[in-house]
Amino acid sequence: MKKKITADFWFGLGAVLFGIFVLVQAKKLPQAKMGIGPGDYPAFVAMVIILLGLIQSVKALLSDASAAQQGEAFDARRAKKVFLLVVGTFAYVFLMKHLGFLLLTPFFLMFLFWMFGYSNKKNAIVISITVAVVIYFLFMYAFQVLLPRFSLF
């Protein structure tokens, strides 16, 4: 029977490749005559990562995949939600520079309430506006942090 390759195998392989990349980059850094040079310590850590990655990949290949896979079955609905939330958060941070915290946050909060399944629309609008205003003024007056403001340029 063909063995199913687990996520552990791919993560182990990824660690090996990442370790090799770091090792190559570290070797380009200058060497020290005494003590350690800037590249020696990351090179050592990279070698440990390569070793651990190799062990993990081999272990994943040798182990019984069926049991390991049970807990990590791909859930498309879940993945879609997480992806949407991450993209939404990045977009929020990107747009905040132009639209400002106070203008953008209520809309982002309403999007988040929808993402987390909060169904009371009226409450969601009220909470979103209240939270954005309270946080904005709390940070401005209590912590002296001026959050990004709306700017055309």
Partner: peptide, 30 residues
């Protein structure tokens, strides 16, 4: 929880921003 979690995201964003008033730190946090 579905009210708390969205508010936590906003607090995380402003918390990272307030470190050096830079959106770069927010990108790092995300």
């Amino acid at each position: 929880t579905n009210i708390l979690m969205p508010i936590i995201i906003i607090l995380c964003v402003v918390g990272s921003y307030s470190l050096g008033n830079q959106l770069y730190d927010v990108y790092v946090a995300v």
